[in-house]
Design a protein around this nucleic acid. Structure first.
Lengths: 229, 229
DNA sequence: TTTGTATTCAAGAGAATAATTGAACAAGTT
DNA sequence: AACTTGTTCAATTATTCTCTTGAATACAAA
């Protein structure tokens, strides 16, 4: 019957769009594109693919109508095809967040500042701490700080960041860390600090990873927030 | 490395959901489930799959967290896992409709009279229902009607419309609705009613959208067709 | 023109997905 | 207990997707 065929065709069309979104790399590129136009090479670098591969993924997104592109010189810039794509991404995030809880909408924060958010490797941080050229910020709750933290780290929980932000040194780089690679606190802190003009970065990993590397940990009572160098 | 893993995990989680929606049959089942609970056999019949196959598709939907199920006797009833899934389906439809000329033409081919059938906004309908100046017609199958419908709606499946058309009040406006914006039943019903001189229009959206707006839904057994005001 | 750069195309190996079949499992029924 | 029914599981095959590789295009600069 015609209705059945109609239905079948219709849902196949719908499914094509969902199918194209059903790939981690393509979704990641879409999220980056939601921040603004990007060319192929940038996108490939951001998501960690070869240019050829990224290009093919982008073709699929284009054929599905989720993105558009324009040529400038010999680069091709891609962008989202419309606001409805943003809404679709939001709806998808909403469902994903209900399922995985911890994820949160931090993705946006993470993506907006990603370029400048290259994490500082642990050993590199240790050297620069020793030469006294960085401020190390522990953004975990005080209890966790008390149980062990990086030597000389200042404890400012994320919730209190706004309160104490003025006491932080503005002329030195700040490196924030929290629980580990899946912990969102440090991302959040760095994003906020950068908004206020600080030169802030994130430690690669958290305290457990630091420990695993055999690097020194300072134990002991809570250290009063903002402390001047 | 941690950043990469973080990203990878995050977007893989993400993509799993989209991937599961990237299949016409699964999408179609989701649309049916947006109307109310169904057991496996019903769903298999509705979308035209073998029971075993439908069951496997449903497992995937369940593992992705899009649907939940409960056992009653030896049937298993499936339902959507939450309202966010309805929103996700809507967002997908929105994109599909805007960008896919194919979908648009499919709809228009089938619904030649679409333009003349301006839909009634949900809230406007609610007001006019309350003042009793419209007849609300639910043209979905009785099972779906029983699973939930607009308060005071009369259930007349499209196939039986011709039979019962004489019992409908000719002096008041009739507003028909069915499953959602792409459901053809209400279009069909309105077209037929207009042919017979009724002042008929279509609700903007279907029952799932009505629910999402937080508007009242009446549950309960089948209400006998044509009922006089 | 030649050279270099950014992107796309095309083909093949390896992995993942879908439909089919038949068997396995529970929860009622006889 | 044996049987029936509705659902799920497991194995097979066909199909589709993904990544890699290397070549082809298009544009810009020398």
């Amino acid at each position: 019957m015609s209705t059945t065929n109609f239905k079948h065709d219709l849902f196949s069309q719908f499914a094509r769009i969902a199918k194209v979104m059903g790939n981690g790399y393509r979704l990641e590129m879409l999220e980056f594109l939601a921040q603004g136009e990007r060319n192929v090479e940038e996108l490939a670098r951001l998501v960690g693919l070869t240019v050829a591969n990224a290009s093919q993924h982008l073709q699929q997104l284009r054929l599905a109508g989720l993105v558009k592109n324009r040529k400038v010189g010999h680069r091709v810039f891609y962008r989202l095809a419309g606001e409805d794509v943003v809404r679709l991404l939001s709806a998808l995030r909403e469902v994903a967040e209900r399922l995985s809880g911890d994820v949160r909408s931090l993705i946006e924060d993470y993506l907006t500042v990603k370029d400048s958010l290259e994490p500082v490797p642990a050993r590199q941080l240790l050297e620069r701490m020793r030469s006294g050229e960085v401020t190390v910020l522990d953004v975990r709750p005080p209890e966790e700080y008390a149980a062990g933290h990086l030597p000389g780290a200042v404890n400012v929980p994320v919730e209190e960041l706004e309160k104490h932000v003025d006491a932080l040194p503005a002329d030195r780089e700040i490196v924030a860390y929290c629980r580990g690679p899946h912990c969102v606190l440090a991302f959040d802190a760095v994003a906020r600090l950068r908004e206020r003009g600080f030169d802030a970065r994130r430690l690669d990993g958290g305290l457990p990873e630091w420990r695993l590397d055999g690097l020194p940990v300072e134990a002991g009572g809570p250290q009063g927030p903002p402390w001047k160098p």
